[in-house]
Write a protein that binds this DNA or RNA. Structure first.
Ligand SMILES: [Zn+2]
Ligand SMILES: [Zn+2]
Ligand SMILES: [Zn+2]
Ligand SMILES: [Zn+2]
Lengths: 135, 135
DNA sequence: TTACATAGTGTTATATTATAACAACTAAAA
DNA sequence: TTTTAGTTGTTATAATATAACACTATGTAA
């Protein structure tokens, strides 16, 4: 998984927390992570947040800002932690990372009124996933 | 201001809080709003959050998710609370709402892998504003 | 090797952001 | 008038995130 990512030798806590997020099918919240890793010796919020910060920084995970939750990056072409896009289902809360060359090119080239480029961005789409649409 | 918006007869608290946000040159955080309106009789966080929720719902303000802050909508063409885009300066924290027909059309028409459309979205660009670039 | 720098850890305490629950009030529709 | 939906005021509490400090591991350079 994430074969395209530069290998960052994760530390013990970083590895424990990344593995948990990576195995999860949906985004995890910091305190839910904490409860799940207490048996592995991680006892305090700060230990979790420090690992999360690092993992976000190196692009192994992303934060879903509107949900205060974290998801593993499974998008080998994403510009590590700099340009992220997701779809979020408002019913089942399923989150999927978008991997679209067209979208990322469009956004990376977007200029504001002053002609400024902002190559770092976060985009969150909301709506219904396929499953929930059929219900 | 916001002449294009449907008039929603704001209640007392909603008006107090909207006026404060509307006058501000930068996004305001909930508790900063609270401190600023205590002299007007709004004493509890819930009173602020309830007004904020309503104002977001009717599109008079937007939440900047990555900053947990609120900004008045000054974009007459934005699709009320459904499709928002901002630039955020990582140095001075200046936030500007983007009003680009091209961008909003592109995003409103974006389809994911399954061909699903998600007309509601929030996009936050990060980088340096003009001022901070020149420093 | 030693010294130093950099990054990570463990811990306690605290700050910040947000919601639950309930009683009371207001305005407008039926 | 009765009812309804929405808003208000209030207390308490939940959920999310950081400050500060002492200590430990690891790599690098003298
Ligand atoms: Zn990614
Ligand atoms: Zn769904
Ligand atoms: Zn707007
Ligand atoms: Zn700036």
């Amino acid at each position: 998984m994430n074969k395209m990512h530069k290998e960052h030798n994760l530390t013990k806590n970083q590895k424990i927390i990344f593995d948990l997020i990576d195995k999860s099918s949906q985004p995890l919240k910091a305190y839910s992570i904490l409860y799940n890793v207490q048996k592995k010796g991680i006892k305090a919020p700060l230990q979790v947040y420090r690992a999360l910060d690092k993992l976000v920084e190196i692009g192994k995970i992303h934060k879903i800002e509107s949900r205060n939750a974290f998801i593993a990056c499974h998008n080998s072409s994403c510009q590590v932690a700099k340009a992220t896009a997701f779809t979020i289902c408002e019913i089942c809360e399923k989150v999927t990372e978008i991997s679209s060359t067209g979208l990322s090119k469009y956004l990376a080239n977007f200029k504001d009124k002053d002609g400024m480029k902002y190559s770092k961005y976060n985009l969150e789409f909301f709506g219904l996933c396929k499953k929930c649409t059929l219900k």
